[in-house]
Amino acid sequence: MTHTHTQAESAEARFAEVFQNLGSIVRYAAARGSRDPEGIAAEVMTIAWRRLPSLPADDPRPWLFVTARNLLMAERRRTGRQAPLDERHTETPAPEAHSGDPAVTAALMQLRPADRDALLLVSWDDLTAAQAARVAGISPVAFRVRLYRARRRFEQALSTQQGDVNGSRTVGMEST
């Protein structure tokens, strides 16, 4: 009985650490255009609690973000909201115009979903490149390459938004 009690307390203590990420998940869902970011975050945490023993012991953040992304996609399917044509078969929810900077939002929307996701995971969600790589499901090296290119493309898109010709010169150096 005491042993069971101690186990329960230990699980609650570990979950309390995981639960610290609640605000990050709310922000993630809100920035990706969820209609109910708090509901998504609560569901992520409920799943995390249920599956606590199988959560990565070293760092649960990538797992939480992947779960949130899956729930976002499910929400989008449920509500029948259509993504732009080139994004319908991706696993990356597009951000909506919630950034407060229309030029930034417009530039983000010009990027490929994978590039946009890489950029936002690092810039808005405060994930390290290694954590974001786990969310994206690719190696850290591949993620760094993707992030580098995404930054270049974003700079170009933002420059275009502002009519800044310097931006296009920077991107001209890319091979892809």
């Binding site: 699980a11 609650e12 979950f15 309390a16 639960f19 609640l22 605000g23 709310v26 922000r27 809100a30 920035a31 970011p37 708090e38 975050a41 609560a42 945490m45 409920t46 609690w49 249920r50 599956r51 606590l52 023993p53 199988s54 919630h98 950034s99 407060g100 900077d101 930034v104 939002t105 983000l108 950029l119 810039s123 808005w124 974003f154």
Partner: peptide, 27 residues
């Protein structure tokens, strides 16, 4: 881009949510 990060404040009763979640069974 970083400055354009949406300013979202979670209006969740964190203690109540935590209590509700840990009261449910785990897999």
């Amino acid at each position: 881009l970083e400055r354009a990060r949406p300013d979202v404040t979670a209006a969740i009763d964190r203690d109540a949510l935590f209590a509700r979640i840990v009261a449910t069974p785990q897999d």
